[in-house]
């Protein structure tokens, strides 16, 4: 169920700051860029795992999301 498109959109919403429209849009682009650019250094099958691991680390430092203050 939690496959990449839905998962990416969900993660973008949370990481962007729940309720922040700009945050969701920007983070969706950032996350997909991370997934794509990671292909330069790691095999494709690892890209999703690595990207969302980065997201987990990010949420540890910014649990309210990137644009939460702008709500």
């Amino acid at each position: 169920m939690a496959s990449p498109p839905l998962l990416t959109a969900t993660i973008a919403m949370i990481a962007g700051g729940v309720g922040s429209i700009t945050g969701a849009f920007v983070l969706a682009i950032v996350i997909t860029e991370l997934q794509n650019m990671s292909l330069l250094v790691i095999p494709g099958e690892w890209s999703i795992g690595v990207t969302f691991f980065i997201f987990v680390i990010f949420m540890l430092f910014r649990p309210t999301g990137l644009f939460a203050a702008a709500r």
Binding site: P5, A9, T10, G23, A24, F25, A28, I29, I31, N36
Partner: peptide, 14 residues
């Protein structure tokens, strides 16, 4: 791809 998924994320958020 980010733009296409961004619209879904915007919808979720909205």
């Amino acid at each position: 791809t980010g733009c296409a998924l961004g619209i879904v994320a915007v919808s979720f958020s909205f």
